[in-house]
Design a protein around this nucleic acid. Structure first.
Lengths: 216, 216
DNA sequence: GAGAACAAAATTGTTGACAATCTTGTTGGA
DNA sequence: TCCAACAAGATTGTCAACAATTTTGTTCTC
């Protein structure tokens, strides 16, 4: 257990604990369902228990941590059914963002999407699933960003945080990149065409595909 | 300032503070942008400051409270643009729920919706906007409930909490009930017809109308 | 050997006090 | 009069100790 010491650089203790603990969970350093004992975390991050507590409360409402009265906290495990339900919500919310982006995005931003599309095609052709996965994320991020829909972006970030584990599993599945590439290109195309309805439909088709893949 | 005393009935102090503070905000007892000083709240609810703190952190991530480092908390004010953005998200999420409900609801549940519809028509005919507003809420609640989509329900509850003030304002606008009644009846009708696409479209039409009303 | 009652350990919940930070009001000088 | 520096007050952030609760291990009885 490495003791990450960097307590008093002016950075608030609670923020320190919050950022590091969130990253640890998202990065997969904490096993699923692992117990999170406040004392241990406090020592590990070099802050007091109160700060860890505050961080855990916040992570609970982000859906990353599960807390039970007098029983402690643990990394929340997302079942496949939950992952499906989450992705259904993503489907409609990202659909909204894509529709907005098709109207709001600047010409410059549309070019960025095109570039991402060609890079993704290249990654698939070259057989680089990890690169493709990274570009995949970036594409979804950009569309959200270009939509200007702050509320939806906030909700989606929270939802995506809960899916890290499942997404990793999905990215490395053989044949999956090939299947999703055309869907992604269709999304880009309809946004470029400034057609909000087509953009929303394309995003939905894509994420419906993701749901099918999750269920297998 | 009434001192609500009921500290140690076995109920956890933090939960006590959380429930009461949330209700106070939702019920409108706290003025918008009102400062929330931890010490005052602690005394008012008969709990310690730490419990109030924990409650405030949770309410912040629910979007009901705004917290600034070393500067304190206040009731968050939702601008009209934010209310519109929130309602756009409601539009797609409730659309999802309605589509699910059209497939999943039992015959008994469909009858409940029909009853609500007739009650709403009666309230409008009788010129009772407050009754109509209550039934309005109940209809939306039921549709969400019948959808079985836990994740979407959770997101929607959070979003709705932020709209209390705007919704009150909207409900009492003259002519508004008449306009929305037919939209609500269309929603019920398409769910009864077990047509998910029509149900989603009806919900979207309705909430698009709400957005128009908000913008005025 | 199985199960209940009890005791010990581990962990979370709570408390009050202290430190750090920000805001506000005041004073001094140009 | 205006502005900067400073001091006082208010408020949040942090800490260590204590209380309450749950879990675990042990012993005793049947």
């Amino acid at each position: 257990m490495p003791k990450e010491a960097r307590p008093g650089t002016g950075e608030q203790a609670k923020q320190h604990a919050l950022v590091h603990l969130r990253q640890a969970i998202l990065h997969g350093d904490m096993a699923p369902a692992q117990r999170l004992v406040e004392n241990e975390l406090a020592e590990q991050f070099g802050v007091t228990r109160a700060s860890v507590r505050a961080a855990l409360i916040e992570l609970e409402s982000e859906g990353l941590v599960e807390r039970i009265r007098n029983r402690g906290s643990r990394v929340r495990v997302v079942t496949v059914e939950e992952a499906v339900a989450i992705t259904e919500c993503r489907m409609v919310l990202e659909g909204l963002c894509a529709a907005k982006a098709a109207v709001e995005a600047s010409e410059d931003q549309l070019d960025q999407l095109t570039d991402l599309g060609t890079a993704m095609a290249k990654a698939v052709a070259g057989g680089e699933p990890l690169v493709y996965s990274r570009l995949n994320h970036e594409l979804h991020d950009r569309i959200r960003e270009f939509s200007g829909q702050q509320v939806a972006v906030g909700l989606l970030e929270r939802l995506n945080g809960q899916l890290v584990r499942h997404r990793f599993q999905l990215a490395l599945r053989p044949g999956r990149p090939q299947q999703s590439l055309s869907e992604h290109l269709a999304m880009i195309e309809s946004i470029r065409a400034r057609d909000p309805q087509a953009a929303e439909a394309a995003v939905r088709t894509h994420l419906a595909g993701v749901i099918d893949a999750l269920r297998q």
